[in-house]
Structure formats: C-alpha cells, structure tokens
Simulated scan of single mutants.
Amino acid sequence: MRESAAERHDRLLALVREHGTARVAELADRLGVSPVTARRDVETLAGQGLLDRAHGRVSWPERRGDPGRAAARPSGEGLVLGLLAPAATYYFAEVIRGAHEAAARAGARLILRISDYRPEEDRPRTEGLLAAGAQGVLVAPGWRGPEDRPSYGTWLAELPVPAVLLERRAEPGSPLDALDRVVSDHGHGVLLALRHLLGLGHGTPLLVARGDSPTALAVRAGYAEALATLDLAAPGPVIDSVPADQDPAAFERAVRSLYEAVSAGRASAALVHNDVDAIEIVRRLAELGVKVPEDLALIAYDDEVAALADTPLTAVAPPKRQVGRHATELLVERLTEDPAEEPARRHLSLLPRLRVRSSCGAPGGSA
C-alpha cells in the first residue's frame, strides 16, 4: 500500500525528534524518497512550525520541548493537540468540529488522524500524532464491539502524554478507567425517547438498533435500563438493524419484523438507531402499507439527517459538538495546570436532547 504524505511526515518528524537535528539529504535516504520530496516535506512542516530549518539542516524546535513534559502555561497558546477519530463524517464530524473550535479559542493547533473503525490502526495512528508533535491527545478508538476494548485498548493507559477518551467508556476498574473521558449519556437519551412516546399514549416502544458500534451497544443497554426504570416489559425482542445497502436481506428481515409487530397490534411506537436506517425503514414500511406517524410513531437516534426525511423524524440528539469542545478544554487544562498538583481525573457525561418533529405525531419542539 502506498504511503500517504501524512504518514511520511510522521516518520520524518519522528526521525528529527529522535536525533534532534538532521540534514535534508540524510532524511531523504532514511525515508526512501527523493531529495526533492524530502525538501518539499521539510518546507511544509517548517511552515507549520513543526520544524526549524536552516542551511540544509532541520532541527526539533526547542520551544516545543518534549510533548510528554509540557510546561505549565496560563492558556493553551502554542499547544499542539492530537485527535484520533474513527471517522470524519456523520456522527464524528460534529465531535471534530467542536474540538477544533475549542482548540482555536485556546490558541492551540489541532491535528487529526482517522482510523476508519479499524481498531488495529488506533495505536499506530496515535503514535503518528505524537510524531507530528502532539503534546496531548483526544482519542475515540475505533472499537466495534466489547471484545475490541481489551484487545485494542490497554496501550492507551501507557501513553506518555495526557489523553482524554471521547465517546468511549472503559471497563470499570481497568487501567483505561483512570483516564479522563467525555461521553454522551446515551442511556438518558433512550429514556427521553421512551418517556415521550409513552406520554403520547403509546404502549412500550420497540427498539430497532444496530450492534456494530459503541453507540449502538450503548443504545441497546440504555433501552434495557429504561425498561427497568419505567417498570415495563419489552413488547418483543430488540430488532437487529443493518444498513440497507450492506445487507439488503437482513434489512428486509428487520423491516418485516417491525411491520408484523405493528400489524399484530404488539407495538405502535419504535425507537430506531440510527437516522439513515430510520429513513430507509420508514420508506419501506410505507410500501408495505404502514404509515408514519399514523400507524407507527417513530423516533430516530443520532439526529444527523433526521430532519431531512420526507416525514421529518423526531430524534434523540447526543451533544456531539459539546463532547468535542469539553474534551478539548479538559485536555488543555491538563497540559497547562501546575505540574506539582495532582488533580482528580474526570468522567464527564453530557445529556442528549429530544428534537420533536412530525414522525411521532406530536407538535414540534425540544424536550
């Protein structure tokens, strides 16, 4: 696989940081690239303030020091922060936006790496952030299921720089549980949705949900907790959802299960994770003769594109941008606090909101 420019820049920065100074010709030889490419990379990195350049040589800037020993500062000015996210689109686009805004307000620079939901890439991508000069990192691992947490997570607790977990929870009592983290309280979001539907006079809502991400698993767990809190019995098992374009047959089974529950009178309301699946499910149900909200009151989870459906979908909206913002502010605080102090680590949970639209058959607004 061809090496990207970002990966080559990471290797170049790692070499300079290791040796302190190097000639451009030496870097070209070590990187296995032409002198022209090495000079172009050096110019780019020097222009970003990541390297000092003079007379054919480059050096690690003394003002940046060791990212593991950032000196206390009254603000985040001059800091370099790293962010590892599993994706740069859909849900995490807002998280990244919030982090970028908070970094800019603090005078810090934010650099980004994407794992594409490949947890085996989390560690090398994070090491790339450190090689690029990150003095602290925000990390949303690309975990897909609970088995990925122990397999691809223990290294996070050994990072040489401050780290804040984003939208990920650690196993209680594990080394990762001692890290700072900022998350959305998805259990609260599910409870908001169920209470709203019950308040409209519906019986216990069904859950239609994916099972391929930490958010999906948190929604499933939140559903079980909400049923216990409200002293309700589930009207049927959780319906496993999959993207229509990835597995059309499995998607059709999910739609048919929901259709049969509505047709048999077992359910008149449902919570669907996520927006894209909900939009496709509403379209397919209409083809089968089940209309939303007349026959089925429906709430989507994520609120990324829910408002753009033919029938605008009521949706649970996790505070994605605020998660990025608060996590970045916390990381800046860690990097600028008095090193003689021993501050308590923080687990911050932010509450989702319910955006009420047409699909649940209630007047619009927020809950």
Score class of each variant (00 low, 15 high):
Ala249Lys: 15
Tyr223Gln: 07
Ala108Thr: 01
Gly173Pro: 09
Leu296Thr: 01
Arg149Gly: 03
Ser174Ile: 13
His347Ala: 08
Glu147Cys: 09
Asn274His: 11
Ala5Trp: 08
Arg53Phe: 11
Pro312Ala: 01
Asn274Arg: 15
Ser184Phe: 08
Arg321Asn: 11
Glu121Lys: 00
Val80Ser: 09
Asp122Glu: 03
Leu296His: 00
Arg256Phe: 09
Glu77Trp: 10
Gln135Gly: 04
Arg210Tyr: 04
Arg113Met: 12
Gly199Ile: 05
Tyr90Ala: 10
Leu50Asp: 00
Ala249Phe: 05
Gly128His: 00
Ala367Cys: 06
Lys291Thr: 13
Asp180Met: 06
Leu129Ile: 13
Asp310His: 03
Ser366Val: 10
Asp302Lys: 00
Ala25Gly: 12
Gly136Pro: 03
Ala327Glu: 10
Cys360Arg: 04
Leu191Asn: 07
Glu158Tyr: 05
Arg97Trp: 14
Gly189Pro: 07
Asp148Glu: 07
Ala261Leu: 04
Ala93Phe: 14
Ala286Val: 02
Arg346Ser: 13
Pro235Ser: 00
Ser358Glu: 14
Val272Asn: 04
Ala6Gln: 12
Ala233Asp: 15
Ala250Asn: 02
Tyr259Pro: 02
Thr204Pro: 14
Arg113Cys: 15
Glu101Arg: 06
Val219Glu: 00
Gly49Lys: 09
Leu197Val: 09
Leu165Ile: 15
Trp143Asn: 09
Ala307Pro: 01
Pro67Leu: 03
Pro312Gly: 07
Ala132Gly: 08
Gly236Lys: 02
Ala170Gly: 14
Leu165Arg: 15
Gly289Ile: 11
Ala157Met: 06
Thr154Leu: 07
Ser75Trp: 13
Val272Ile: 02
Ile299Lys: 02
Leu179Phe: 06
Asp41Pro: 02
Leu288Tyr: 10
Ser241Val: 06
Ser4Asp: 03
Ala250Phe: 03
Val182Glu: 05
Met1Arg: 15
Gly133Ala: 05
Ala218His: 13
Leu191Tyr: 08
Glu260Gly: 10
Arg283Phe: 07
Glu121Phe: 00
Ser34Pro: 15
Leu285Asn: 00
Asp303Gln: 05
Glu147Thr: 12
Ala170Tyr: 03
Ala309Cys: 00
Ser263Trp: 10
His273Asn: 15
Ala221Tyr: 05
Arg195Asn: 00
Val80Met: 14
Ala278Ile: 08
Asp148Ala: 14
Trp60Ala: 04
Ala46Asn: 10
